[in-house]
């Protein structure tokens, strides 16, 4: 019940981080013959507007969920505009800054149906310290926490040694997330920031 909800970062960071998700209501939307064709079409529309990451196309025909990450609100608006026109009847969830999404929906003559708000992270007294906020910005982008903090630290070291480019490291850190919701472009920015931190 959380998945894309608890992404860390400031408002400025989050302005470049939106996730779109299409999902069948089990036993309702998936009971029609053309259900999976609709899901494929939704995947194609998301792909058309240049997501920075998207769930593997191989699963579009079998899954109950298609997901993609975008680095700008304009692309998200374009996807919503097309989905509204096509009227597939499948639930669409947009994760990101509430105020920005609300404004975009108003422009498209839509209104939020239901919102899942985040109260953030709580930590018990016996918990050893969590990784730094910058590391958590990357790890919390995967809704199933498959990106390990120590792999990020290792890539920072390798980048500094000139053994891998920032872009290649970002691509590799995206891999464990099978849902395609980790924002590769945002990882690049965070890695850049981590490298500067270490230099100072």
């Amino acid at each position: 019940m959380t998945h894309t909800l608890h992404r860390k970062g400031t408002v400025e960071d989050l302005k470049e981080d939106y996730v779109m998700l299409a999902m069948f209501a089990a036993g309702i939307n998936d009971s029609y013959d053309d259900s999976h064709q609709k899901m494929v079409k939704i995947g194609e529309i998301m792909k058309k507007y240049n997501p920075v990451n998207i769930i593997s196309e191989i699963v579009w025909v079998t899954t109950s969920t298609v997901t993609a990450a975008f680095d700008n609100l304009e692309s998200v608006k374009n996807v919503i505009r097309e989905l509204k026109k096509e009227d597939f009847g499948i639930s669409i969830v947009v994760s990101g800054l509430i105020s920005e999404i609300e404004e975009a929906l108003k422009e498209l003559e839509l209104y939020p149906h239901t919102i899942h708000f985040s109260l953030g992270t709580f930590s018990g007294p016996k918990v050893q310290s969590l990784p730094s906020e910058k590391i958590l910005e990357i790890t919390t982008m995967c809704g199933h926490h498959t990106v390990s903090p120590q792999s990020i630290t290792n890539y920072v070291k390798l980048i500094k040694q000139g053994k891998i480019t920032i872009e290649k490291a970002a691509e590799k850190l995206t891999k464990p997330c099978v849902c395609g919701i980790v924002n590769t472009k945002r990882i690049t920015k965070v890695l850049n920031s981590l490298i500067s931190e270490k230099k100072n």
Partner: peptide
Amino acid sequence: VTNLGFQVRPNAKINIGLGK
């Protein structure tokens, strides 16, 4: 929620009401 003493993050998940 803020009045109840909790901070709400600026980002959320928003169901935009296209499902039927």
